[in-house]
């Protein structure tokens, strides 16, 4: 792990992003406590900057992400085993070129939104990928811990442990993880009866960020629309940009908070109405964390040992008292 990873990431990114003038003050302050480790990171996606790379066939971030990741997906077996008693095989291996939605081969794509706001017509280009939620149900309730939230904030699926049951996608508010059937550990167990492949999604380029480097999409963007840095700095920066453009944030409270802040000059409900949504095409709706409904009962579980202990000791004490009282007169 590099020693100056944090300030390294943030300074480089921010200086590149804003010419270094305004930002040096917020981000330039090296935080010695965090300098030793990567710490919690966050990313910022500035919709006032992303233009969808009009001069290229495919936007630069998508190209970079696919170049890094596509080869890591193993070829599925042929034929892919049928599922019993029911279940749909999802095979994207012959459609690797699809870049207008999330697939097991495309972890980042660009949504386009034509919106009218304040009497002005605007076209927005919106990079979409995993939000790397603060308390991601996709990871916490994976039955095999094949999906895990790293201390950097990155939420990462281990393709060697994943069974492809897609529980993570079911509980993800944005339908992010995408399945490729016919690969993975389930093939070696009961392929027709349990599991259905491996789930894939953005991993925030964990291998790079732990070394203090940037995700490849961040580095690839010619307009610095994508930023990464220490979490508090990114949150502060997002708020500042929002204020200065009189804009809006998405991702700071959604699903209980995330590591991905969208900053936009246009309200997100308008964007949401203008984009194509559906499977593999995430929305911009407000999202409450569904797992919050289990927090109260879960806390009761954590207190149950104490309750049992206290009750056990009290009952034993009561029983001892009773028997010592009875013993006297009766003999």
């Amino acid at each position: 792990m590099s020693t100056q990873s944090n300030s390294g990431i943030s300074r480089r990114t921010f200086l590149k992003a804003a010419g270094g003038v305004t930002l040096a003050s917020t981000v330039g302050l090296p935080k010695p406590t965090r300098a030793q480790e990567t710490g919690r990171l966050a990313t910022l996606i500035d919709l006032s900057l992303c233009d969808g790379c009009p001069e290229r066939d495919t936007p630069a971030c998508i190209v970079a992400c696919r170049a890094k990741n596509i080869e890591t997906v193993p070829e599925p077996v042929d034929p892919i085993p049928k599922l019993l008693p029911r279940g749909k095989i999802e095979d994207w291996s012959k459609k690797k070129d699809v870049t207008d939605r999330l697939t097991p081969y495309t972890y980042l794509y660009i949504q386009k939104a034509d919106v009218e706001y304040n009497g002005k017509q605007k076209t927005l280009h919106i990079p979409r990928r995993c939000m790397h939620c603060d308390n991601p149900a996709c990871a916490t309730i994976c039955p095999f811990t094949a999906n895990h939230k790293d201390t950097t904030g990155a939420v990462v699926i281990n393709k060697n442990l994943c069974f492809g049951g897609a529980k993570c996608r079911t509980v993800c508010p944005w339908d992010i993880p995408q399945r490729q059937s016919g690969i993975g550990i389930y093939l070696h167990i009961l392929p027709t009866l349990a599991g259905n492949g491996v789930m894939f999604k953005c991993d925030l380029c964990l291998d790079l960020i732990v070394e203090g480097r940037n995700p490849v999409c961040v580095d690839a963007c010619p307009r610095q629309a994508l930023l990464i840095g220490p979490r508090e700095d990114i949150y502060a920066e997002a708020r500042r940009r929002t204020e200065s453009m009189n804009g809006f944030i998405y991702g700071d409270t959604e699903n209980g908070g995330t590591s991905t802040l969208y900053v936009s000059p246009v309200p997100f409900d308008l964007i949401n109405a203008a984009i194509d949504t559906g499977p593999g095409k995430p929305h911009f709706n407000p999202v409450v964390r569904s797992m919050a409904k289990t927090d109260a009962m879960g806390t009761a579980v954590l207190l149950a040992p104490i309750a049992g202990l206290v009750a056990g000791v009290a009952a034993a004490a009561g029983s001892l008292k009773k028997s010592s009282k009875e013993e006297g007169p009766h003999e």
Binding site: P305, A307, A315
Partner: peptide
């Protein structure tokens, strides 16, 4: 709670 009760009791 029942298991811990059992053990301590």
């Amino acid at each position: 709670a029942a298991c811990l009760f059992h053990v301590f009791y």
